[in-house]
Every structure is written in structure tokens, then in C-alpha cells.
């Protein structure tokens, strides 16, 4: 027993301060060790189970949550980027289509104007041609008339020169007959 010690700390320690036998097997010290061990274990258990472990569990859960949220946000942003790209592509395609439409419209308008101008020009040309035709035919008619008159005069003069008495009517009829022939 602990009370039996003489001078030194315990029955398990020799007078020179070194251990007698194995200190681990000294029964005198065991109650003390067990008592303090139980205190230490109970203290650690309560500190851990009341404070530390729930706290670490919540921190880990929170971190997991943050990571999940961040991943979700990143996914969201990625979706948005894809959408923006799609919108951009659509706008680009629209603009291109519009440009095509405008070009086609302009072309059609220009074509129509051109057609109109050509038609007008054609009509003018046709009118001018008809006018010219008429003028030419008038000229031709007047020329024929002149030739007739000249021929009748000439024929009357010739007849008179030859010595005959020219009958105007007969001369005219003869010239007409000749010219028709």
C-alpha cells in the first residue's frame, strides 16, 4: 500500500531512486493512473462530442454546400454563356437575312425601273420611227406627185416641140398610164 512507503516515494522505487522491478506492475500506482485516465477520457469525450465533432461536421457540410452551390452557379453561368452565344448567332443570322432581303428588294426595284426605262425608250423609239416613216411616205408621195407633174409638163412640152397640138388631158392620161405601168 501507498502508506507503507519509507522515505522514498513508493514501495516500487529503490533507495537509489531507480525502479524496483517493472514500474508498470506496481500495484500502488494503479489507482492513481486509472483515476486520472478516466478523468482525461471523460474530459476528451465531452469536449469532442459536445463541441468539436458537431462543429467539424457542420464545417464540412457547409463546405460541401458551398462547393455544390459554386458548381451550380458555374453551371448557370455556363448556360447563360451558351444562351448568349445562341442569341448572338441568331442576331447575326437575322441581320444577314435582312441584308439579303434588302439587297433583293433593291435589285427588284432597280430591275423594275430599268424595265420601265427600257419600255419608255422603246416606245419613244417606236414613235420616232413611225413619225419618220410618215415623213418618208409623205416625201415619197410628194416626190411622186412632182415627178408626175414634171412628166406631164415635159410630155406636153415635147408634144408641142414636135409640132403637135397637145391636149392636156390626153397627155396626163398617157403619163399616168406610163407611170402605173
Amino acid at each position: 500500500m501507498a502508506t507503507e512507503t519509507t522515505g522514498t516515494a513508493s514501495a516500487c522505487v529503490g533507495p537509489d531512486g531507480s525502479a524496483i522491478g517493472m514500474p508498470q506492475l506496481c500495484a500502488d500506482w494503479m489507482p492513481n493512473q486509472i483515476f486520472w485516465l478516466l478523468i482525461a477520457l471523460i474530459a476528451i469525450y465531452f469536449v469532442l462530442s459536445r463541441i468539436a465533432l458537431p462543429r467539424i461536421a457542420s464545417v464540412l457540410a457547409e463546405r460541401q454546400g458551398t462547393i455544390t452551390n459554386d458548381l451550380a452557379a458555374a453551371e448557370d453561368l455556363k448556360h447563360k454563356a451558351v444562351e448568349a452565344e445562341e442569341a448572338y448567332n441568331k442576331a447575326l443570322a437575322d441581320a444577314r437575312a435582312e441584308a439579303h432581303a434588302i439587297i433583293a428588294k433593291n435589285k427588284a426595284e432597280m430591275q423594275a425601273e430599268l424595265d420601265k426605262a427600257i419600255a419608255k425608250a422603246d416606245a419613244e423609239i417606236a414613235a420616232k420611227a413611225a413619225e419618220s416613216e410618215k415623213a418618208i411616205s409623205e416625201i415619197r408621195a410628194s416626190a411622186v406627185q412632182s415627178v408626175e407633174a414634171v412628166a406631164k409638163d415635159t410630155a406636153g412640152s415635147i408634144v408641142a416641140a414636135v409640132g403637135g397640138q397637145a391636149d392636156d388631158a390626153a397627155v396626163a392620161a398617157a403619163v399616168d398610164a406610163q407611170m402605173k405601168g
Binding site: 501507498a2 502508506t3 512507503t5 516515494a9 513508493s10 516500487c12 522505487v13 531512486g17 531507480s18 525502479a19 517493472m22 514500474p23 508498470q24 506496481c26 500502488d28 500506482w29 489507482p31 492513481n32 493512473q33 483515476f35 486520472w36 485516465l37
Partner: peptide, 25 residues
């Protein structure tokens, strides 16, 4: 003295090691 490091001693005073003594353990 390979076993001397395992000796249990009281830290305050030089008395015996009772159940509630504040030892190096």
C-alpha cells in the same frame, strides 16, 4: 536504467502516490 522513465512520482511534495495525487501521469 531503462525502466526508470516509467516511474510514477508525485509532482508536488514527496509523499506517497495516493489515488488523487497529482502525479506525472
Amino acid at each position: 536504467h531503462p525502466m526508470d522513465q516509467f516511474i510514477v512520482k508525485p509532482l508536488f511534495g514527496d509523499g506517497a502516490v495516493g489515488m488523487f495525487t497529482f502525479t506525472n501521469v
